[in-house]
Structure formats: C-alpha cells, structure tokens
Design a protein around this nucleic acid. Structure first.
Lengths: 209, 209, 209, 209
DNA sequence: CATGAATGAGTTTTCATTCAT
DNA sequence: TATGAATGAAAACTCATTCAT
C-alpha cells in the first residue's frame, strides 16, 4: 500500500521525475530539430545531445524513432484539439463557428510552426511502413473530430453533410500548409492576427452563397 | 546538306530520341513513386526499374537525386504557372481574379496530387543542404509570380500591398496542403469541382470586409 | 575517491581498453592489407574483417578511410623519426652522420616494408583531394626534420646549404623506394645489413669530392 | 601484292595514320594525367577527352585500362633501356660504369617525372590482379637487364655476384623514388645535374671499400 | 572504325538499433 | 536505468566496359 506502484499519482520517486524531465526535453528538442532540419536529418543522436542525455536513453523511452514521431504528432494534435473543442460548447451561428475553428488552427500553427512542419513530415514517411499508417490514422482522427464539430454548421451553410470531412480537411490543411510553406519561405511568422482572421473567416463566409 | 547537323532542332538522332524518352519516363515514374512512397523511400533504383532502365542511366541524366527532384519541382511549377498566367490577361473584378487563381491551383493539385506531394516533400529536405535551398527558391519564385498577379486585386479588396506575398502563400498553400493531406488520407480526390470552387472563392470573398 | 574519474590517465575503463585494442588491430591489419594489396584494393570491410570487428566500427574510430591512411602515415613517420632523431645528439663527423641517417632509414624500411609501401601509396592518392595534400605535408615535415639534422654535415661535405632538403629527399626516397620496389619484386627483404650499410654509406661518401 | 595488308610498312592508309596518331595522343595524355592525378583518379573518359577522341575509341586500342597502363609502363621502360644499353658497349672502369648507369636513370626520371610516377603507381595496383603481375614482371625484366650489365663491374667492386640484382634495384629505385617523391613535394625538378651526378656517383664509389 | 549512351558491380559511408557494462 | 560502443543493412553514386548506330 505504501509502495510506489500502489498509487499512481503519489509522489513519484525523484528518479521517475528525472526520467519524465528527460522525456519532455527529448520531445521538445526533437520537435524543434525535426522542424528545423527535416525528419530524416534530425538524427537520434542529435536529439539526445540537444536534450543532454545519452543516445541509448532515447530507446528506453520509445522503442523506435518512428514511435517517437508518432507520439510527437499525437501530442501536437491533442494539444491542438484542446483548444478547438471548447468552441463546440458555446453556441454561435454557423458561420462564426467554422470561422473560429479555422482561426484557432491558424493561430496555433502560427505560434508553433514546428507543429505544422511535423504534421507535413509525418505524412511523408514511407508509405509502406507502419509509421506512415499510424500518422495517417492520427491525423484522420483529428479530422473526424473537427468534422463532427462542424457538421451541423456546414449543413446550415449548404455544405453537403457527407462531405463535411473535406471541409475539415480544408480548414486543417489551410492552416497547416500555410505555416509549413511559410516557415520554409520565411513568411507568415509575423502576419498580423487580424489578417489571419480574415483568411480564416474567408473560408467560412465563402461557404455561404 | 540534309544531314542532321544542318539544322539545330531538326530530326534529333533516334538515339537522342530514345534518350529523351527515357528521361521523360524517369520523370513520370519518379514523380509517381515520390508521391506514393515518399521522397526518401523512393530509391533511385526503384525509379529506374519503374522506367525500365539501368540504375546508372539515371545518373547520366541528373548528377544527383536532389538535382532530379529539383527538376521535377521546376517542371511542376512551370506547368502550373502556364495555367495561372493567362488569368492575368483577361480583365475581371478583383474578387474574381483572386478566386480564379485559387481555383486554378486547387484544380491543378486535384488532378495531380503527385504535384502537391512533391511540393511538400521537396521543402522537407535537409534544411542544411543545397537541395533545400533550391527548392525553397523555386517555390519562392512561384509565389512572387502569383503575388505580382494579384497585388492590385488584393489592394482593391483592402489587403495591404506589402503583404500580398502572404496572400499568394495562402492561395498556394491552401491548394497544395489540401491535396497533400488529402492524398495521404484518401480524401479530396473526388471532391466535386463545384465545392472546390466554393472553397476557392471563399478566400477571395473573405478578403472583402 | 578511488574511482576512475579521479585521475585522468588512471585505469581506463575496460570498455575503453577494448576500444583501443580494436583501433590498434585495425591499424595493424590495415597497414598489412594496404601493403599487400594496394591502397585502393584494401577495402574497409576487409580491414575490419581482418581486425575482427564490424564494418561500422571502423567509422567510429576514423571519419573516413582517408583519415585512417593519414593516421597510419603519421604513425609510421613518427615511429621512424623516433629512431632518426637520436643520431643528431651524439657528435660524429659529417660523413658518418649522413651515412647513419641513411642507414636508419634503410633498416627501418627493410624491417617494415609495409611502411615503405604506405609512404609510396599515400602519395599516389588523387592529387585533387585533401588526402593527398595531407600526405604530402606529412612527408614534407619529415623531410624538413631530416634536412635540419643534416644541414651542417652536408655543408661540411660541400653540399649547397639551400639544397639540403634535396639531400634529405635522396636519403628518404632511396630507402623507401628500394624497399617499395623490392617488396613488389620480392627483393631486398634478406639483403644483408652489411650490404645495406654500404649502400647507405655510399651516399655519404659520394658527397665528398 | 598491292593490297595494304601485303606490305607491313608500306604507305599506311591515312586512316591507319590517324589511328596511330590517336593512340600516341592517348598514351601521352594518359601518362600525364596518371602522373598528375594518380592512376585511379585518371578516368578513361578524362584521357580520351584530353586526347580529343570519343570514349569508346580507347577500347579499340586497348582491351582494358590495365592493358593501357601495362603498355605505358613498357614504353617507358623500353625508352629508358634504350638510353642505358649503350653504356655497356663502351669500355670503362667498373666504378664509372655503375655511376653512369645510375646517372642515366636519374636524368631520365628528372626529365620525365611522369615516368617515375607511373613506375610507382603501376606497382600499387591490386596485388590480386593480373595487372599487378604484369607490371611486376616488366619492372623485373628491366632490373634483370640492368643487373646483367653491371654484374662484372659489381664483382670488381667487391659486390657479391649473386646479389647484383639488388644493386640494380638500388640504382633504379633510387632514381625512381627520388623523383616520384620529389614530384609530389615539388622538389628535385631543378636540382642541378652536377648534384644529381654526385648522388649517382655516390652509389658507385660507395661500393668500393 | 568511331562514338557515346547504357549498364551494374562494387565501394564508401550513414545511422537506427542493440546490448554489455 | 543510463550509457555509448558496436553493428550491418541500406543507399547514393562511380566508372570501366559493352554495344548499337
């Protein structure tokens, strides 16, 4: 009862704390490096060096580099979802809802261009490999979530219900693509929120005839 | 007098013809493979096998794989530009011009998802390498072209002149990103033109306050 | 307090020991193979196989094959220099000094024909490459060392001071060349020291009018 | 009787002339390139380009690159032999004969450092290959020739008869080695003949007790 | 014969992953 | 558990050689 294993959240041993710290640093530095140098160019040894741990440590946290990328992608999309979901709760008109969802995506990727980079690079993994499958599934899940949120609004705006997922795709890809290309071309980082909002709203308004 | 050497562009030797044929096949199959399996996973040997030539032949056409990718990117963007440029000639209202430019991009990438894939993957090359530099520059040039076309229209719609390039980025990335994510997720390929037009128009309309 | 970290040079970890062992074995086997088969024909994989380690291990010790060759050359010339230098300390007449320097070179290369082989092959590397530059510089440094030693003696024997380096070249190339050609032709390995000494002395005596 | 094939030396067809011209140019440029860049770095295509012929032409003259090198080596040693042999005809004292043979070698390699380079590089070919065998044999034959010439002289000077070949080796390797190392280190090219003679004579004089 | 386009065997080098300490 | 040394599969690229024109 008093042993560590007994209670999950109870005073993690200092060792456990250090371990989690290391994992966090690895995630952070890994994401940065992948965004800065590309997925292939970001070597495991670079990531561990940046995080200040030994190379072998990496593989005590994730079984493979692909698994690491998968978790990174999951973190990013989970984080993004946390900001999107509340929009579904407060009732607004259809147009505003869609516009807001787009705006949140745009702002998120503007602040975290690494997230946009990761999104794109993860989908560029070998189509054969399980890693690609996993990435696709994870993004798909995010899209489903967004689609579910905006289905009624879309319908009100005259968008075919069975095609709402493409609407979600439009929102996510617009935002992700803009800041992914933008990061490469050194554009977009300082685009004023006001203009981004206009871009976000553009989609929504455009739907209404 | 009637020999080949007489006229520069006349009757290329059958050998040259075969050679060009091979180059074209390599480009086609290369683009397909890169889109299907990812840039890194598309090995040179796969591309040559798909094109039905020996491995070494590849390197008689391009000095490196990166040079090949660069040329592919150039071909794609040149091809795309050929379809975009005419829009600048026929006079229309500002909103329609922007909407049309967006629509052409969307349709282009819908028909050629490989092009969208290439665009995204080329920018994911090692940030250090010259290949990445080249890709960035090429895309940048395309953006400049688009920006130049839509600058007046953007201004009329109240978009700051010095930020037109970001507008161009929005158009290109929306289209490219949509079909890049879409291809991975098996979405978008059959989205009706009508809906795509609406998405395209969305940006344009959204600009007007 | 008694741990390894306490003293810098004390008790290298057993892992480090094994590592150094491997490096030494690689150097030895590499030198042998290069002498036996030629620099180009001595594949890295052959060297590692001969040393009983994996192929990749090679590159954890030297970044390139060229760097390996450079170190080998340095080892050889450093080792040779260790035997030559003492001659400069004990005072003798000019003729004997030169003869002794020549004799040490001859004996050294007779006992280690691989060293002679390496010397010649390293200079045969692509003239364009940095590897060739490095090899040339290293040999040049050895020549300078020898030249400095024999400058006064040479002068006494009537050899122009500004051409002492060519004298050094004569000594080194005579010895190296003899056993390099000799090894290829299966000659020289059992030439009696007495005869070698005569050859060595020949240079010295010959200088005096 | 009147056909070309009938008489060997009679009026070679202009075609034959051009062919021989090409072969000569290939030999010359090949030797230069091998000396300048190293045997491995001197690509067949470089040689043909330098000679102003197509790549394929090379292989109508020699079946392999190795055969080309073998012929080059043969040409060089034959050329050298032509200058050495006359010394055996005019009677002189033993010391002078040996000294003269050495001097001829030294002068030859000073004027043609490419020849020295070729000599060394040819012996560095894969020990496994037939090319190496051939090179070794050819050099061996040259050594035998020299040895035969100086055997009596050597004996008179007190050099063991059964070791004359090593004496020949000393002469050839001294000269070849000096200018081979010298060419790499930019030394020796302008060493005055007088000093070279002294070096050459050194060997001879040194032999006498 | 001369040519240069095509070819693929062969080599270096990289890097995720394993595992003994 | 953390570490970094060892490993070998994999991939780009080179270049002598072949051969159709």
């Amino acid at each position: 009862m008093n042993t560590q294993a007994t209670m999950d959240q109870a005073t993690p041993s200092p060792r456990q704390l250090r371990r989690r710290q290391a994992a966090r640093r690895l995630s952070e530095e890994g994401l940065k490096l992948i965004a800065r140098q590309g997925l292939a160019a970001a070597k495991v040894v670079d990531i561990t060096a940046a995080a200040g741990v030994g190379k072998g440590t990496f593989f005590t946290h994730w079984p493979t580099k692909d698994a690491f990328v998968a978790e990174l992608l999951d973190q990013v999309l989970t984080d993004l979802a946390r900001r999107v979901r509340p929009l579904g709760l407060a009732p607004t008109d259809a147009e505003s809802l869609v516009a807001d969802v787009a705006a949140v995506h745009l702002r998120y990727f503007q602040l975290r261009p690494e997230a946009a980079a990761l999104l794109n690079q993860a989908l560029a993994l070998d189509s054969g490999g399980a890693a690609h499958q996993a990435a696709v599934q994870r993004v798909d899940a995010h899209l489903d979530m967004v689609a579910q949120m905006i289905t009624p609004a879309g319908e009100q705006l005259g968008w075919p219900r069975e095609r709402t997922k493409e609407l979600a795709l439009a929102i996510v890809s617009t935002a992700g693509g803009f800041f992914w290309l933008g990061a490469s071309l050194k554009l977009g980082a300082d685009t004023p929120l006001e203009l981004l909002d206009r871009l976000g709203r553009a989609l929504a308004r455009g739907l209404a005839r």
